[in-house]
């Protein structure tokens, strides 16, 4: 089986400081990879380098493209990369305002990616938007409302619908449940799990919430000071951490 994403020696420096250093991993279709670590550990830098939002200094990000098999995303031309970003890839921001067009209706937000890849039938676009709003549990009669009229949890679900409508194969998520209250988080987690399973999605999820990764991620990488200090099955890393930092991280979680 070919990995969907193959990362080799990815390194990003900010001057003398390390953003992330020598990160390597394989991600297979249908797998969800969690990246945890404290603030400043480099997890967001890594995610942004993977997604092409930041230019890494060295290393490879190989993606199994539909047309040509494994390609180094870093060596792709910008048009190719942007095309990938709105077809096979998706990016869910922590703050929905960063991932939504706040001045455009919910239906328009979901429809944008469809129109970006050439959909030109209003009725079809609207029907698909309607379908996706249903899948993320947003009532059909809110389709023409702007995201500004939505709660935080609804905005986040809308962002997810907007990202998944074109059937991407790889989703990057930056603290997708951050900033949401606990009951809303649970609903979102359930939704994400269902979507991952039904669509066979692969995902890379950055979070500092160990409970979230336990429920959502199959595999886990722990980062500290830009380095991956430990990686493995999520439950194994959390229940039998091998690295001192991971042991500290796991034992520092407050029990509810």
């Amino acid at each position: 089986m070919t990995p969907l994403l193959q990362v080799k020696g990815l390194t990003k420096r900010y001057g003398a400081r390390i953003g992330c250093a020598d990160v390597s991993f394989d991600l297979y279709p249908g797998e969800v990879m969690g990246i945890v670590g404290e603030s400043g550990s480099g997890k967001s830098t890594l995610l942004n380098c993977l997604a092409g939002h930041l230019e890494a200094d060295s290393g490879h990000v190989m993606f199994d493209t539909r047309a040509e098999g494994l390609r180094d995303v870093r060596a792709m031309s910008e048009p190719e990369r942007r095309m990938l970003a709105r077809t096979d890839w998706a990016f869910v921001h922590q703050n929905p305002r960063d991932g939504l067009r706040m001045g455009v209706s919910a239906g328009g937000n979901v429809g944008e990616r469809l129109m970006a890849v050439g959909a030109r039938h209003y009725g079809d676009i609207r029907a698909q938007a309607q379908d996706w709003l249903g899948r993320v549990e947003i009532a059909a009669d809110r389709i023409d409302d702007r995201p500004t009229a939505f709660s935080g949890g609804m905005q986040q679900r809308l962002q997810i619908a907007r990202n998944l409508v074109t059937g991407p194969r790889l989703v990057f998520m930056d603290e997708p449940t951050g900033g949401l209250d606990v009951s809303v988080q649970a609903r979102l987690l359930d939704l994400l799990r269902g979507l991952v399973r039904e669509m066979g999605l692969s995902a890379v999820i950055v979070t500092h919430d160990l409970a979230v990764v336990r429920l959502l991620a199959h595999r886990l990488m722990v980062m500290k000071s830009g380095h991956v200090v430990e990686a493995g099955l999520t439950d194994q890393v959390l229940d039998d951490p091998q690295h001192g930092y991971t042991q500290l991280l796991v034992s520092s979680v407050l029990q509810a």
């Binding site: 910008e78 048009p79 942007r82 067009r101 209706s105 129109m115 970006a116 676009i125």
Partner: peptide
Amino acid sequence: RKMHALEEYGLVHVKLYEDIAR
């Protein structure tokens, strides 16, 4: 400018979509 260069014009249709929706 980048959108013109790369022919990424989906957004123009978003505007027209919003018109019809409203």
